[in-house]
Amino acid sequence: MKILVAVKRVVDPNVRVRVRPDGQGVELTNVKMAMNPFDEIAVEEALRLKEAGKAEEVVLVSIGPAQANETLRNGLAMGADRGIHVQTDARVEPLAVAKLLKAIAVEEAADLMFLGKQAIDDDANQTGQMLAALLGWAQGTFASRVELGEGRVSVTREVDGGLQTVSLKLPAVITTDLRLNEPRYASLPNIMKAKKKPIDVRTVESLGVDISPRHTVLSVTEPPARKAGTLVASVDELLDRLRNEAGVL
């Protein structure tokens, strides 16, 4: 069993992003970056399967600029075996990411792919589903529990109104939700070890994928600000204002 995990380098979730003055994007210079939190969960889940003796190899894939190397190193320090870096400075949309990941999944003959359910920069929530469609594989999105069996994987999904458990025939694509697990921190010895693990750097061309964007970003703006509110002194004042000022009670 070989597991591939897609990891994206994104703005750290604790950073408050600001729209650039030119309105063409958000400020990314000197901003702290990190592995997409859902992808950390994906790496963790793959590692647990390996540690349970259910998988032999965990391979990370990241598509992005030179610095995506750091993201891969972080995942290798968590315990993954090796990395594949599709290096490009271009803006790569989810559809193109899915096509690149498909090419790699085929090359690697992967049995299972983990992706995050959503990248916290574009909030697109579509790459995993697209990858599954392109490969013709079953998909288990928004996973909060994964159980690997013989030739099948059972995935409990967080859906509107409850949980749904599906049994997927392998190979399959799984996208992770927040409750799946708590990702580990990399220990210092593992960070040292990770420096020696192999990362294969690839070009988009070598994978034969057209990544030209389909979307043109016309503008990026600040969301409308809420006007400053008032502090009330008591429950009575709160109820009075909700009834007589806001008129919502």
Binding site: I120, R214, H215, V220, T221, E222
Partner: peptide, 15 residues
């Protein structure tokens, strides 16, 4: 919305 609603993007699709 993108970035948890901290930015709002307007995009044009050529699809």
């Amino acid at each position: 919305p993108i970035y948890a609603g901290n930015a709002i993007e307007t995009i044009q699709s050529s699809d």
